[in-house]
Design a protein around this nucleic acid. Structure first.
Lengths: 152, 152
DNA sequence: TTAGATGCAAAATTTTTGCATGAGT
DNA sequence: ACTCATGCAAAAATTTTGCATCTAA
């Protein structure tokens, strides 16, 4: 499965978010954060853990999970489910917009989004405080339509 | 947890997709499919299993998972990660618009959506054949903000 | 100094599989 | 008849937790 690149966030963005949220600035966390920012498609907890270990040997899996949870809570990262089934944590500052192929699972990110207006209006009406949004368009990519390929 | 109705997809849509894909039309599958179509924010495998059991007593968990996988492959549902951490399988055909509370998991559906345009344009540019789209706005509902409840 | 973080290992969850049996076509 | 689908239970994989020990602030 191919899948789009993680838009290289300005280094330190996630770390800053954590700090501003009042969490301590620790080496293990910095390692996880760096792993995420440099993860290129390899965003599964397991892969992030291995990457974080290279940066901060001795880091435990639990710390990776705990940090991912913090970041998710801050809306800095958004857990998604990859075509192969496992979780992936792409950086998600702001909204995320995906074009997802039902055939091969490819996920292409795009920026255009016209929801600002509607989102705010609907949210206000329901008394919601918006944190972010996810817009996914599902379909079949050219390749899959041609080959009649189907995701297993 | 409260949550709005799931816009009743034309009953049988998912079942039809399965049939057209060449899969057998069995009672257990029909139960799962109905559970999904009637899932009201309760889209976790576990909840869907309980719902399916009410429709077809004796159905096993494995069948639910297997059916969800088939439907995912067909692009009929799209696995996402719920605020509480588990998976959710919202319908991915047609257009769905949810307001999801990070605090209590409430899912409210709404109709307004300005994405028709954008979706078509982006899809065409990438050579995608659109099957549907999902717009989810994440935030905190009034109740949760008052009680200070936060997603764990 | 002191609340918050970490690593480890165990526990809990969630999802997948093997296999004998039962159904749809 | 012949596949394909199912349920069950076991196995695997994934995620969460308890707790003693560190460490940033």
């Amino acid at each position: 499965m191919k899948s789009s690149e993680t838009k290289a966030e300005r280094p330190g963005l996630l770390a800053r978010l954590l700090r501003e949220a009042g969490y301590r600035d620790t080496a293990p966390r910095r390692a996880v954060v760096r792993a995420i920012e440099e993860a290129d498609g390899e965003q599964s907890p397991e892969a992030l853990w291995r990457a974080a270990q290279r940066i901060h040997p001795g880091i435990g899996r639990a710390t990776v999970y705990r940090t991912l949870e913090l970041l998710t809570g801050l809306g800095a990262v958004r857990p998604l489910i990859a075509a192969e089934g496992g979780r992936r944590y792409p950086v998600a500052v702001g909204g995320h917009h995906h074009l997802v192929c039902s055939g091969c699972g490819t996920v292409v990110e795009f920026d255009e989004c016209a929801e600002g207006e509607v989102a705010r209006r609907v949210a206000r009406r329901q008394g919601f405080a918006i944190q972010g949004h996810l817009l996914e368009i599902y379909g079949t990519c050219g390749d899959c339509r041609v080959t009649g390929e189907v995701r297993t």
